[in-house]
Simulated scan of single mutants.
Amino acid sequence: MKIASIAKSILAGLAAGAAAAVTAVQDNVITTGEGVTIVLAVLGAWGITYAIPNRPKTNA
């Protein structure tokens, strides 16, 4: 397991969670539904990004 694949999925999860959190905090209150949306955004980004492999390096 390479660090690059883990790092890109963690960063994607943080970005998705931050985007969902910024949207949820617009009214200064985070409801249960918004919290669930933030968690699902993070988990979805982790799963999708981790499942897609990095492009193989070429010797060019």
Rank of each mutant, 00 (worst) to 15 (best):
N54G: 07
T37E: 08
S5T: 13
N28R: 09
R55K: 15
A20N: 08
V39I: 12
L14A: 15
K2V: 00
A45P: 06
A19M: 10
V22Y: 08
T32I: 09
G13L: 05
A4Q: 13
I38C: 11
N59M: 02
T31Y: 02
G35W: 11
W46V: 14
T31N: 11
G47V: 13
A41I: 12
Y50H: 03
V29W: 02
G44Q: 09
T49E: 01
L14W: 06
R55V: 15
Y50T: 00
K8D: 08
T31Q: 08
N28K: 13
A60S: 04
K57W: 01
G35H: 10
S9I: 05
A41L: 10
V22M: 13
A20K: 13
I52C: 03
V39L: 14
T58M: 00
A7Q: 09
A19T: 08
G47I: 14
Y50A: 08
V36Q: 14
A19D: 04
V36F: 10
I38F: 12
A45K: 01
A45G: 03
T23N: 12
P56Y: 01
W46R: 07
G17L: 01
A12E: 03
I3W: 06
I48R: 06
P56V: 05
V25R: 09
K2C: 04
I10A: 13
A60H: 00
K8V: 06
A24C: 08
L11H: 06
G17H: 01
Q26W: 05
G33V: 05
P53N: 02
T37M: 12
A19P: 04
K57P: 00
G17M: 03
E34V: 14
A16K: 12
A41E: 11
S9D: 07
I10P: 04
G33N: 12
A16V: 11
V22I: 12
A20E: 15
I10V: 15
I6H: 03
